[in-house]
C-alpha cells in the first residue's frame, strides 16, 4: 500500500519534470537554452520513472524480481552517465557549427566566421577573457 503510493508519487513527479522539459524544448528561444531543458529534465525524469518501476517490481519480492530490479538499476546508472555525455556531444557540435543564438541585448544573430565575432563579444555571449 505504502509502496504503491510511493510509486505513484515518483511517477507523477517524473511526469511533471518531463512536462517541464517538453515545454522548455518547445518554448525556449535558442538552441543552447533548449539543451539546458533537455539535459537536466530528461535525466531526472527518467530516473524517477525507472525508480518507480523498481519499487513496483520489488513489491512481490523473489529472486527473479530482484534480478530484474538490478538490471533496471544498471539502466538508471547508465542513463546517469550517458545522458549528460550525449548532451555535451550535441552542444559541442552546435558550438562548432555556430548555430544562431539569442541574447538579451540582441535578437537572433548568427555567428559565422571571424568578422562577426568582434560584434558578438559586445553582447557578452562568447567569453571575453580567460580567468587567471
Amino acid at each position: 500500500m505504502i509502496i504503491d503510493i510511493l510509486v505513484i508519487i515518483a511517477m507523477l513527479t517524473g511526469l511533471l519534470f518531463f512536462v517541464a522539459t517538453t515545454v522548455g524544448i518547445i518554448r525556449f528561444p535558442d538552441f543552447y537554452s533548449r539543451v539546458h531543458a533537455a539535459g537536466k529534465g530528461d535525466t531526472l525524469s527518467t530516473t524517477l520513472f525507472l525508480g518507480g518501476a523498481i519499487l513496483f517490481i520489488l513489491r512481490d519480492f523473489s529472486e527473479e524480481t530482484l534480478l530484474t530490479a538490478i538490471k533496471l538499476l544498471l539502466i538508471v546508472f547508465y542513463i546517469f552517465i550517458a545522458s549528460p555525455t550525449a548532451t555535451h556531444a550535441i552542444i559541442d557540435a552546435g558550438y562548432e557549427f555556430r548555430v544562431p543564438y539569442w541574447t538579451r541585448s540582441s535578437k537572433k544573430k548568427c555567428a559565422e566566421g571571424e568578422e562577426t565575432t568582434e560584434e558578438n563579444l559586445d553582447n557578452g555571449f562568447y567569453p571575453e577573457e580567460l580567468k587567471g
Binding site: P29, Y32, W102, T103, R104, G124, F125, P127, L130, K131
Partner: peptide, 9 residues
C-alpha cells in the same frame, strides 16, 4: 533568461 558562455581554467 540571459544566456552567455564563460570560460575558466
Amino acid at each position: 533568461l540571459d544566456p552567455h558562455i564563460i570560460k575558466f581554467r
